[in-house]
């Protein structure tokens, strides 16, 4: 491998690749399937064609991901990449996480807007209080159990208490951020057994988090009447925790694959960006959770 000083000369420009076009087709089929499925669902049609198209799309994407990542892993292990290439990957992952932050901020923004502005106005307070004329009886309190038009949007009877499952989940997720950092230190110190064990512990914690989250959702739907269609509280609650849960699920999958690679002997103490990218992502979902715990559950 070339030394780092001449890394400019060895910037790896890959040959032709089929993965981008496979990915584009996969995404198109996926969204077409998802759209068909949703439209049939809303039109009360019992056609199942949407599900099958969606499944086909997801399988194509899975194939693309597997193939594309294998390609990158193999190139990296053949020593085709330079320190400069490594920086490109780091920038790519960093800016990707920034885009995820902005995605979540749309939903946090919606939550803050409703709680601070739109909700009070609808109850007749403040500068735009004339919208209170729509439903004169409406009182705005948070959590919102009584919606402006309960006939259309029946509110939840109760909301999730932050000091039970959510608190446990907070501890679990923060602990998992710490264990993944321990795994990283072990990797840099070339302690492979410790690396495997810490990473395995992280994956287990992630799985426990997801299980508890599913239990919480079942509790909300079955016992509390807290659902997606229970008004703006349910909408913001499930949108924020749901997208977070989806990201945790993706993060768990990523960490599992990193664990399998570790067990195959991949990564060296000074070349392991795949591991680090997964760890960055994991810390990101952890930070989002802390925001959720504070603004969705506690406050």
């Amino acid at each position: 491998m070339a030394s780092h000083d001449t890394s400019h000369e060895t910037y790896y420009v890959p040959p032709q690749s089929k993965w981008p076009i496979v990915g584009s087709i996969g995404l198109l089929v996926t969204v077409f399937g998802a759209g068909t499925m949703m439209n049939n669902m809303s039109a009360d049609s019992d056609s199942s064609i949407g599900y099958w198209i969606l499944l086909a799309g997801i399988l194509i994407i899975a194939y693309m991901m597997f193939g594309w990542f294998s390609n990158v892993v193999n190139e990296s292990r053949q020593g085709l990449y330079s320190a400069q290439m490594d920086r490109s990957f780091r920038m790519g992952m960093g800016w990707f996480i920034f885009s995820e932050v902005m995605f979540f901020s749309a939903f946090f923004g919606a939550l803050f807007y409703v709680r601070m502005l739109a909700g009070p106005w609808l109850a007749g307070e403040g500068h735009k209080g004339e919208s209170g004329l729509l439903w004169p009886e409406f009182q705005f309190v948070w959590p919102l159990l009584q919606n402006p038009d309960p006939a259309v949007y029946p509110g939840p009877t109760e909301t999730i208490s932050p000091w039970q499952l959510p608190l446990i989940n907070t501890v679990i997720l923060i602990t998992s951020s710490i264990t993944v950092t321990f795994a990283h230190h072990a990797l840099r110190a070339a302690k492979r057994t410790a690396l495997t064990l810490w990473l395995l512990l992280t994956v287990i914690l992630a799985a426990v988090f997801l299980t508890l989250q599913i239990m919480e959702y079942m509790h909300a739907y079955n016992d509390l009447g807290l659902t997606l269609d229970s008004g703006i509280y349910g909408a913001t609650f499930f949108m924020l925790t749901g997208f977070h849960g989806f990201h945790v699920a993706m993060g768990t999958l990523i960490l599992t694959i990193i664990l399998l690679r570790v067990m195959k002997g991949h990564f060296t103490p000074d070349n392991h960006f795949g591991f680090e990218a997964a760890a960055w992502y994991w810390h990101f979902v952890d930070v989002v959770w802390v925001g959720l715990f504070i603004f969705v559950y506690v406050l």
Binding site: L228, D229, M239
Partner: peptide, 23 residues
Amino acid sequence: MMLMDIHFGTSFFNAAGGGDPVM
């Protein structure tokens, strides 16, 4: 959020559920 309002019954942009079209 539009997609959820249309197909999954959320009320981000519907004042009847406490949301706001201006949002």
